[in-house]
Structure formats: structure tokens, C-alpha cells
Design a protein around this nucleic acid. Structure first.
Lengths: 266, 266
DNA sequence: GAAAAAGAATTACATAAAGCAACATTAAAC
DNA sequence: GTTTAATGTTGCTTTATGTAATTCTTTTTC
């Protein structure tokens, strides 16, 4: 079905305009850009024809024309980079509060995420820390800090989180004895529970909650009431949830009834 | 079949400005800095062109211009301190040559180091790669690339290399079957042997040489004749050593007599 | 700390490549 | 065969890139 579209036999591919369009869009989806000369060679048609194809697709709003070819509308540069900026003030406050729970010499686990990255920044005052993390950015940040030892938990990298996930990361956690863990989460549900996006993420956080001396979830207020699909088993064992302001009322109480302390950053 | 689709004619790759822009922003995101000469070498265009690209991106607010290149717009990046690349042109050439040895779909191991980082950059044309690395920068760079799967080998982070070292990294290597490995080295000794700075580094490279389908050392000319303390066991099993120019004569011959091919990048 | 040297920015212009529009040609449809 | 749609061709315009001369910066040297 799709295979026909993507077939590279130039004679076959040549005939029909819709085939070209399909292939053009497919390439755009994977590469982000297409070149006119490149396409003309591939389909064995003139550049003018390709130009007409692109013009048509551009009129339909399926791509952006540029000199020499076309690009996707949004080159989706800033998935992660963008998120970092959201709620920056709140996250910095959470970071400072979290850092206040850490003493020199401790072993600290830092989860992936922008809020935990803020915690990492706030930890720069502490000495002789051992940081244990799955996040590439946090590793890079902390390893450039003096008096800090960093352990990166390996595994397959999730391009969205820019952090290690999966079996290897899960296994690596076993090797560590951590004093305090700061964990992210997908949302804080109306009944006071932190929930997650992925099964392996939830499992990882669950284990950390279980093995760390103290485990804290760090959540900025944009997460309040947000529902994500996975519960985090043994969430009740967490020492606390650090937020930038008190969540609307059914939530805060429900959370405290479960056990973890509700800590509001200042 | 799809392979035809994914052809990487360097002429085409050069043509489109948006492709350069994408790569420039990607580099900025990982390195925090880009140099004009560096980029001109990499894309094989004039400095003037790169200057025009940077000017354009700066007007869009995507970066800050500085003398000789550009930096990230926000100084949020305490995380990504500047890493001036010495010998950037030579490394880019080595990177291109190395990338020429990689086919779409392969499993590639990339060692830590600035030369292997250049290889990573050059691999941006390839599709469906699985990258396996100990380097934080390379992980971060490659996981932002479409159609690339990244495995970060975990372990304690060496702040100099900004890469995982030690037992965990050594163990993690076992789990992988890699098609081709690109390894760094401390120096190329007068008797034609690649040597290393640390015991664990040497061991890691030795194992990789042994288990990878093909292993190549990538060394720029500043390493010629340099003596570092550790030999790399089973160095002779490497498929080749990629350099930017032929080393002075006792060295080149000695190397070839040992087995590995001497590949000079163009 | 000032002078010299090296590298980088800027300007202006030349050239090559791409876009465009009108017309010619071919292939499909009736 | 005629008609219609799609593609190819041609000449001209526009855009992108490269080159060279000049003027800053920065770095090096004494």
C-alpha cells in the first residue's frame, strides 16, 4: 500500500503526480527539507515540474517554499528548549526549596525534566555531592561543577525527555543507594496523585520512591489537575511533593491524606 | 530500495540554506557556540555565506552574533560552556571521511572526544542509525536528530571527557553488537601505535576494537608523535586509522606494518 | 601598555544557480 | 482525430553564493 508510494523504481514513480506528492511529503516528514534538483533527479522529471508540484502543495498549506526546495512549516526546533522557558520563575523557586533539603556530601538522584534541571542549578552551592541521573542535560551541567561526582544512568535515549529510559536505566538504579531523590511527573491528578506519561517512566519513579532515603516529587503549578494515563505505584511512600503554590482545594487535601507532605516553595 | 531515497549527494545537501540553518541551530543547542570557519569547512561553503546565515538567524532572534561565530541567544546556558575546537577544519574532514564508511541502518559506536563529535556531525546525512556512545554531547546531539536511535552507555562521568567511564560503561559495551566503531586516542606514537591517557580508556577502546565489526581510530595531526602512557591492547585488530594528513615518515610506515590501514581524509 | 600581526567584519561586485512566464511538446481522454 | 491536461523548453529576471579590497577587532609581541 504505502510501499508502492515509496517505491523507488523511477519509471513507475515517474508517471503520476500524486505519487510524487506522496513521496515528497514523506521525505519532508523524515528529513525536514527537500531539494528541487534532488527530486527532479529522483523522479526523472524536469525541475519545472517539481516546482509546480511544490507550488501546489504549498498552496494547500502542506509545506513552505524556500529557494531551491521546500521545508516543513515548523522545523520543530524547540521542543525541549521551549519548555525550559515555561514557568521559569516557578521552577527556580522549586529548585531553591528542593536544594534546601540537600546537605553537603549527599547522594542525590535527579530525574529528567525541566523542573529537576532547575533543582540541579540550585544545587551548585553544595559541595561533595554525588549526583545520579538519567538526564543528559543534568549530567552535562553537573559534571562541569567542581566537587561533584556524576553518575549517568545509561540506556536508550528518549528524544523528548533527552534522558535514558528503558530496561538499562531501570536496572542501573539498583546499583545505587541514594539519600534523596527529586522526581518529575506528568501531572497531579484531582485525587492527589502524581501520574505519568509512560509505563517505564512510572516504574522508574516508583522504584526510586521505594529505594531512596527520601523521595520528593517536584511539580510546577501547570501540572495541577492534569490527567496523564499512568499511576505511579507506591506513590504514597514519597516524602513530599514540592510545588510553587498550593493547588486548588480538592487536590491539596487529597494529596496530604495519602501521606506525602505538601511543600510550597517561596 | 529506500536506500535510493536516502542518497546523500553532498552537492544537494549544501544547496539548501534551511539545511544549514537546521544544523547550525542543532550545534548551537549542543555546543553552545558555533564558529564561522568551522561551519564553512563543514558545509564546504564560503565564510561569507555562513555569515549571511548567521545574520539571518540572528535577525530571527535564534542566536547571538559574536566575533568569529555565534552563541545561544539566552545566557541560560551555564550548562554549555564554550569548547573551542582546535583544528576544526581537519576534524570536519576526518568526520566526513568517517561518515563515508557508514551506511544507512548501521549500528555505530562513537567514542568521546572532539574528533568523534565531528564524526557525529557528519553523520547527520545518514538515516536509521543506531548510535551507541559514552559521550554526553554526542548523545544530546544525536537524539535531536530524526531517524536516529541513541543508546547512552552509563557510568561515572569523567568531567574532562564529559563522557561515561569506568566499570559500568565497560560492562554496558558487552550488550551491543556494533557494525562500526570510531574511537579516539591520546596520541599516535613514533612506532605507529595509538596510545591512551587512562587505563580504563585503553581497556574500553581495546574491547571495542575487538568486538566491533570494524573499528577505526580517528586522530587529527596534532596527535602525531605524541606519547601517552598506555598502550591499547589488540590495537592491531583495528580496521584503520583516519587522519587529516599523512604522518611524518617513520610513523606512517610503522603503523601500516602493524595492520590497520592508514586513511587520509580529503 | 603600545605596536604589529592575524583574523574577522563589511562592502561592493561578479558569477552561478534558481525562479518565472510564455510557449512548445507530449501524453492521456473523449 | 480533436481536445485537454500535464510536462518540457526557452529566454529573461531574481536570488544566492563566491571573491576581492578595505576597514575593524582581537591577539600577540616586545
Amino acid at each position: 500500500m504505502i510501499a508502492d508510494t515509496a517505491m523507488s523504481d523511477s519509471q513507475n514513480a515517474r508517471a503520476l503526480a500524486p505519487r510524487r506528492h506522496g513521496e515528497i511529503l514523506r521525505r519532508l516528514a523524515t528529513d525536514g527539507t527537500v531539494g528541487i534538483t534532488e527530486l527532479a533527479d529522483f523522479f526523472d522529471v524536469s525541475r519545472q515540474t517539481i516546482r509546480r508540484d511544490l507550488k501546489l502543495l504549498a498552496d494547500r498549506g502542506q509545506l513552505d517554499l524556500v529557494h531551491g526546495g521546500a521545508t516543513l512549516f515548523e522545523p520543530v526546533e524547540a521542543a525541549f528548549t521551549e519548555r525550559r522557558e515555561e514557568n521559569a520563575g516557578a521552577k527556580a523557586a522549586i529548585g531553591r526549596t528542593a536544594a534546601g533539603l540537600v546537605r553537603d556530601g549527599m547522594v542525590v538522584f535527579l530525574d529528567s525534566g525541566t523542573t529537576t534541571l532547575a533543582v540541579a542549578h540550585a544545587l551548585s552551592e553544595r559541595k561533595n555531592l554525588t549526583i545520579c541521573t538519567t538526564s543528559l542535560s543534568i549530567s552535562l551541567l553537573m559534571c562541569r561543577q567542581p566537587h561533584v561526582r556524576v553518575h549517568m544512568l545509561g540506556g536508550e535515549i528518549d528524544p523528548v525527555e533527552e534522558a535514558a529510559v528503558g530496561i538499562d536505566a531501570l536496572e542501573a538504579i539498583r546499583h545505587f543507594r541514594v539519600d534523596v531523590a527529586f522526581l518529575g511527573g506528568g501531572g497531579l491528578s484531582p485525587d492527589g496523585e502524581v501520574t505519568d506519561f509512560t509505563r517505564s517512566g512510572a516504574e522508574q519513579r516508583s522504584r526510586m520512591t521505594n529505594t531512596a532515603g527520601k523521595a520528593y516529587f517536584v511539580l510546577d503549578s501547570s501540572k495541577f489537575g492534569r490527567l496523564t494515563p499512568l499511576r505511579i505505584p507506591r506513590f504514597e511512600l514519597a516524602a513530599g511533593v514540592i510545588v510553587d503554590r498550593r493547588p486548588p482545594e480538592p487536590i491539596g487535601e487529597a494529596l496530604e491524606r495519602r501521606g506525602p507532605a505538601l511543600i510550597v516553595a517561596t
